[in-house]
Structures are given as structure tokens and as C-alpha cells.
Amino acid sequence: MGVFATSPESRRRHRSQQVAFAVLLAMTVLLVLPVLAILGMLVWRGAPALSLEFLFTAPVRGMTAGGIWPAIVGTMWLVGVSLAISAPIGVLAAVYLNEYARDSWVTRVIHLAIVNLAGVPSIVHALFGVGAFVLFFRFGTSILSASLTLAIMTLPVIIASTKEALAAVPMTFREACWNVGASRWQTIWHVVLPNSIAGILTGIILQVSRAAGETAPILFTGAAVFVPFLPQSVNDQCMALSMHLFTISTQVQSVPQSITYGTALVLVLLVVLVNGVSIVIRSRIRRRRKW
């Protein structure tokens, strides 16, 4: 009997540790199961509907046949215009907050506002959008109003993720740069941004998938149930995938299930694709990182 022989006490501890591992593993599997179930269900039910015709034609016969092209194009318009608004503002605001602003009560209030704005439910953003953009600014129900609403919704998250990416650049990098006589902006431009761009882009791209999936903010501000035309300008209304899915599953009778699931599958694939791109970008840039 050596000193390190297992005692009944340590065997018991080992057993309970294994039980704990098993429970934790079960929790993790439980977390993944619904995702796999949803994806599997969508692919199984929706894949038969997918075809080039489904993707590139307009819905016909009371939206019970045909494709979803106007909805795909509409979603791209909404996401594109909203990102064109929120990405520049969000990144520049984050650069100011992280690199220039001193820690005063004003910046603390701004931080608080951003954190809280990120937690506002999307339907509240929607109502704000109706009041501000549709009615007050008289943009009407249009892509512009819907995109502005989406932009306001995604802005706080873009600011927060950009700030985090900037803060991840070690302070010593900046100090080294300052010490050779570089200005603040030179430091930001040549040192901080190149080293944080992966995180910044990831944050922005993740908001693409959020903007593409939301229904509430566009419901009253710009998306329509049916528009047999592709939008020509930001003043037009458009269809959107999320809204189309809602419509054909709650309003329209005798829509073949394959079309409903097919639409859902396209929406999910679009989001997965965008997230995949962000993962690739991040890993490529991270490989070049020097610390």
C-alpha cells in the first residue's frame, strides 16, 4: 500500500466527478439538439422545393406557387441600406468612445445608453420607426424607413462589438507608437485598426444576419405582403424573406408545405452563409496577427 494508492474516499470523489461530467455533457447535447432538429426538419421538408426556379421567380397564383425572388432581393435591399447607415456610424462612434473619449460622466451615460439600446425589443424599435421615419420625417412605408429602423436596432451592437475589438488591441502597441512621435490618429490608422479589423468585421457581419431575420422592425415600416415588382429605389416598398414566411404561413390558404419550409430554409441558409463568411474572415486575419 503506497501513499498514492486509491482510497475509497478518492474513488468516491472520482465517481462523482464522472457523474458531473456526464451531466454537463448531457446539458451541452441538449443545447445542440434543438438546433440540429430545426435544421434537419427544414432541410428534410424544404429541400425538395429548392430549385433555380424557386429562387429566381416571383410568387404566382396567390403566392401558392412560384418562387421567392422578390423576397430575396427585398431582404438584400433592407440589409444593404441598413448596414450602409449603421456600419460607418457605429465604427466611427466606437473609435471615438474607445480611443479619444475621456472617462467622464458624459461618456458613461453614452455607454449606458448603448448597452440599454441593445436590449430594447425589436417591436419597440418598429414602433419608433413608424413614429419617426414613416410619419415624422414623411419617408412613408418604404425601404428607407425600414432600413433606418433596422440600422437603429443594429447600431448599438455594432458599437459594442467594435469597441470590444479595439479594446482587445494591447495598450503597449499604442504606447510604443506614441513614443516614436505618432499622433493619435496615426496610431489608430496604422496600429489599432489593422489589428482589430477582424473583430470589427465579425461584429458587422453578425448584424447582417440579425437584420435579415427580423420581422417586427420592417412589418410596419417598409415590407409588404406582396409586391410583384423588384424595388427601384429606397422609396419603394419591398417584400422580405422573414415577412414572406410569416405571410404564407398565417394568411394564405393552401400553400404547399414545401414552399413554406423552402422559404425558411433559404432564410436560414442565407444567415448561415453570412455567419460562415464572418468566421472565415476572422480566422484568415487572425492568422496574420502578430501577438
Binding site: V81, L83, A84, I85, A87, P88, F137, R138, F139, G140, T141, S142, L144, S147, A224, V227, F229, Q232, S233, V234, N235, D236, Q237
Partner: peptide, 24 residues
């Protein structure tokens, strides 16, 4: 992107009415 926004806002801000007939 910012240029696009300026353009979009310019077009929208002029209050140009959509040529779509909105039916709701």
C-alpha cells in the same frame, strides 16, 4: 457606404413619392 447613405437620404429627403401604388 456613407456615400450611399447620403444618396439614399438625399433621394428620400426630397420627399420624392414612390411610383408604387401602396395598398394596405
Amino acid at each position: 457606404l456613407a456615400g450611399c447613405v447620403a444618396l439614399a437620404l438625399g433621394v428620400g429627403g426630397c420627399g420624392k413619392k414612390s411610383r408604387m401604388i401602396q395598398n394596405k
